[in-house]
Amino acid sequence: MSAKKERPISKTAGWRELPSGGMIPAGGTAEAFKTGDWRTIRPVHHREHCIDCMQCWAYCPDMAILLEDGVRVIGMDFDHCKGCGICANVCPTKPKSIDMVSEIEAQRKDAEGEGEE
């Protein structure tokens, strides 16, 4: 998904233009950075088992659980999900509504899917 916030500091800024001392002069800027690319395992959401209890949403350290209308879980923000697995761990449904799968496998499948189209 695309970043909502813009980077507060340009990556090409010279040393004279940068705020002093490494300061980032804005809040909530993590949204502007894709930090999900070191994930080795990926959560897969099974909508059919989900009861929208919001446990995963509350526990996610990266606010990467996506909601619809603020009440319905519709998936994950893979730009920011680090694959920590907490969401799958806290999911109370049986069977689980979130599985952790290999990121490489998932990416390979995604690529094959695109190829078929």
């Binding site: 940068l18 490494g22 300061m23 800027t29």
Partner: peptide
């Protein structure tokens, strides 16, 4: 009113510029 971050991770892409500015100061 004006939130900000001090002391963030400052890697290959920015640390050098910050040190250059410190030298100039």
């Amino acid at each position: 009113e004006q939130p900000m971050t001090l002391g963030p991770l400052d890697l290959q892409d920015f640390y050098f510029e910050h040190k250059r500015a410190e030298a100039e100061a």
